[in-house]
């Protein structure tokens, strides 16, 4: 479906094609010079490979007929979209999902659909926006296709459940997740349109990353599970300033927020905080995370 989007992919395919040619060297079957042919095209009487029937053992033909080519292409596409750090385990999991999906012949119940949708959503990082959007689309479809008679669509209950599960995957404090869900939720029997669905899912993913970054920030500020409260306050103030920064057009706002959070500004703020000769109490990791994520949640536009 998205095979034409990235020119880079063409090279992968030509490599695959070259590979198939190599495998098929014994039987001269042209294994699709321009991209990979669809599995159906391998049927006798198709465009090119008429000699294929003569060499019944032709590897390329077998690969096409058995659907291996299509499966491998789909898998590599997913790898390219998601760019996982550990592609081997990613692929192991990917194919395992396929096995499970193949095994479940009848329309899967809500738990399976939820699990599959969750898997789709988490395949690609949200900063890979195209991949993320296409996966969100797939998740939306999977979630909505369970009806006995027709496509049932995604209702508010399934949607909230999915969001809840996404939030469970990360380190975001429970209050933050609950508050976020309150802001983006739909009523249980309401049909959820795709743009709301995507917005909700994306926001949850961003919250998780925000929480992870805040956690990393805290690790820098303190030792173990507590940090100087003055430092934490200063950093939180800077964060709040940055998030609330500017009212101009977007790119400008991003730049301004970025500059406010630059190391020099932060260092200055922290330095000033330490100069105040107040009694240095400490702040716990939980408290810091709660305050930081609250800043983020406050910026989330509620779904009306």
């Amino acid at each position: 479906m998205a095979a034409q989007k990235l020119p880079a992919r063409a090279e992968v395919w030509s490599k695959m094609a070259a590979y198939e040619k190599r495998r098929a060297a014994a039987a001269p079957v042209p294994a699709g010079g321009s991209g990979l042919p669809e599995p159906g095209r391998a049927a006798p009487g198709g465009g090119g490979p008429t000699e294929g029937s003569a060499a019944e053992g032709s590897a390329a033909e077998f690969l096409l007929r058995a659907g291996v080519t299509a499966m491998v292409r789909e898998a590599l596409l997913k790898v390219l979209e998601a760019r996982p750090a550990e592609p081997v385990s990613f692929l192991a999991e990917y194919f395992e999902r396929l096995v499970l999906a193949e095994a479940a012949a009848e329309p899967p119940g809500p738990p399976q659909r939820l699990a599959r949708a969750l898997w789709y959503v988490c395949l690609a990082h949200h900063s890979h926006r195209t991949a993320f959007d296409s996966n969100a689309g797939a998740a939306y479809e999977v979630l909505g296709c369970g009806g006995r008679r027709r496509a049932a669509g995604v209702d508010g209950r399934l949607y909230s459940e999915l969001l809840r599960r996404i939030c469970q995957r990360g380190a975001a404090p429970a209050e933050a997740a609950a508050e976020l869900l309150r802001r983006v939720r739909c009523r249980d029997h309401e049909a959820v349109p795709f743009d709301v669905f995507r917005y909700g899912v994306l926001t949850c993913c961003v919250l998780l990353e925000f929480a992870a970054k805040a956690d990393a920030l805290f690790a820098v500020l303190g030792a173990g599970d507590s940090a100087d409260s003055r430092l934490c306050q200063a950093v939180l103030r800077a964060l709040e300033d940055a998030l609330g920064a500017g009212h101009g057009p977007r790119p400008g706002r991003y730049l301004e927020a970025g500059s406010r959070l630059g190391p020099d500004r932060l260092a200055l703020a922290m330095d000033q905080a330490l100069q105040e000769r107040k009694l240095g109490s400490s702040m716990s990791r939980e408290e810091f995370l709660r305050k930081a994520t609250a800043l983020f949640i406050a910026k989330v536009k509620p779904v009306e």
Binding site: Y19, R23, L63, V68, F95, E96, L98
Partner: peptide
């Protein structure tokens, strides 16, 4: 990634009779 994918496919081809019955996705898994 391609090293392993290619190897997987050539292993699959070597055992194609078994694999056809066993399931291709399962083989890759």
């Amino acid at each position: 990634v391609l090293t392993y994918m290619e190897d997987a496919v050539s292993q699959l081809l070597e055992n194609r009779e078994d694999v056809s019955q066993y399931g291709i996705a399962r083989f890759f898994t």
